[in-house]
Design a protein around this nucleic acid. Structure first.
Lengths: 117, 117
DNA sequence: TGGTTATATTCCTGTCAAGGAATACAGATC
DNA sequence: GATCTGTATTCCTTGACAGGAATATAACCA
């Protein structure tokens, strides 16, 4: 469910920048506005998207709202990534010749040739 | 900046489905069309996006074009993820237990090729 | 209460991406 | 060359999203 919003939330470079800022430490909106060079409304809208994706959470501090990273969805991403990481490790193994078309890498791929049509 | 195109390429659920299909094995376009339930032109357009993001590569086989996953950009994603994974581990440590949510038993499988988000 | 600060929301507009239909293109076979 | 298959591309329409300006809301303070 949150998967779709998670990916699309992180698809925006500004939002990734915000997430990177929050990786260092939690920050109030004003600080994010200043650091990103976005307008305050725009920043608030991005923060809303990140909130709805579960990537950040808010703590109210007087009039300020301090945003902090919530790493749980990141773990989701990580889990999604896992099978691909394996493939990547295998292909690192089989490295040596990776020009754009090398049909002989099937000797290292465990399950390629079942391509009957 | 293949980074931007990488994220936006994966932001689309159909394209993630295609990528998941190609994780199993390389496939010609027709097979992807059938598996995803998209039209052929739409599928070709998605494949173009994935190609331009470096996520897939093509091998020509007679009239068919066989697409295969290229795991290198995935490694880029993984690198981006690394600092957050650290944060996640730290918070796991400090947390102990905050699992009132559904346990993510599907967390090790990539998305089903059937588009569900 | 009124004013000030900090943030969120609404309205509007331009841009961009997705999907469908039709078409173009490439390779194979005859 | 004619034609068939498989795939890519173009054109068009529609919907989603980003950003700016103005405004609303909430918390604090005098």
């Amino acid at each position: 469910m949150s998967d779709a919003s998670l990916w699309s939330a992180l698809a925006d470079p500004h939002r990734r920048a915000i997430v990177a800022l929050l990786l260092e430490r939690p920050r109030p909106v004003g600080e994010i506005v200043e650091a990103c060079g976005l307008s305050q409304p725009s920043t608030s809208k991005h923060l809303k998207v990140l909130r709805e994706a579960g990537l950040v959470r808010v703590r109210q501090d007087a009039q300020r709202r301090v945003y902090a990273l919530d790493p749980a969805p990141i773990a989701e991403l990580d889990a999604w990534l896992a099978p691909y990481r394996e493939l990547w490790n295998r292909s690192l193994d089989a490295l040596g010749r990776r020009l754009d078309e090398t049909p002989d890498d099937t000797s290292h791929a465990p399950e390629e040739p079942t391509m009957k049509d």
